[in-house]
Design a protein around this nucleic acid. Structure first.
Lengths: 129, 129
DNA sequence: CCTATGTCGATGCAGTTGCATCTATATTGA
DNA sequence: TCAATATAGATGCAACTGCATCGACATAGG
């Protein structure tokens, strides 16, 4: 049930984003992390750890986002192997415009079907897993 | 949180199946449906409706499963456009060998972390969505 | 200092997915 | 009956994913 539920939800969110001409959900997660990281940005491997993405996935996702101008990438001074990625102004705007679309699907798919107490309880149960 | 939880669970299941030299989880769902459908099998579009898969995804998934010998495909007599797919003996065996691997991950990831009452409650909440 | 090993990130390749479109057959209705 | 439309399933193409591996730099141990 968990699988079916979340897959359906995911598809709805992706479809809503696409219909609004916005990037996929994974980009939202990245933008949110980078926004939280502030101006100093963060290392790709840290992003990978936070979002539990595979290393190669992170590398290529960042590639695309840099190309799209949502993320800035610069060489890391402390570590010659590494780099620092940070969100651009355009990235901030994009994230902001994604949120209402994302949120609306969640509200209509979850908020409308569960009472607030149930939603809290669901969150509590899921967090234990 | 729902997304993160289910994605992690999914990855664990896929990894366990792969480690056991077994096909991916989607194949399990198909095999289970076909096994329930019995000897008459079922139409691909019906499978697509039940599993909520895209049409092209169903077509290609069945291609691979037929190639792997887990599914039999024959032309449909009633409808010249259509076909009938059904599970083969090998498919039944494969599904049977997948179940314990699948189940074990669920038990260790869910059963071990939630009490039976919590699990029931979780299922109830998810079913409302 | 130098070699061995570990970590960071990139990439070639094969397999998979999404999208749009196609062919073939079925159904509807004038 | 025949044209218009709808449905079943396949497929070319571009994008994306997983896997294995690579090259570059970092760090530890002798």
């Amino acid at each position: 049930m968990l699988m079916r539920t979340s897959r359906g939800l995911l598809e709805d969110v992706e479809a809503a984003l696409k219909a609004a001409g916005l990037p996929p959900l994974a980009w939202y997660d990245v933008l949110l992390e980078l926004e939280k990281a502030g101006n100093e940005g963060m290392r790709p491997f840290e992003l990978k750890n936070r979002l539990l993405l595979p290393q190669y996935g992170t590398s290529r996702l960042l590639d695309r986002m840099v190309t799209a101008g949502l993320v800035d990438r610069q060489d890391c001074e402390d570590d010659g192997r590494g780099q620092i990625v940070s969100i651009s102004d355009s990235g901030r705007e994009t994230r902001a415009s994604m949120w209402p679309v994302y949120g609306k699907v969640l509200v209509t798919r979850i908020g409308a079907k569960l009472t607030p107490e149930e939603a809290i309880q669901l969150a509590r149960l899921l967090s234990k897993i």
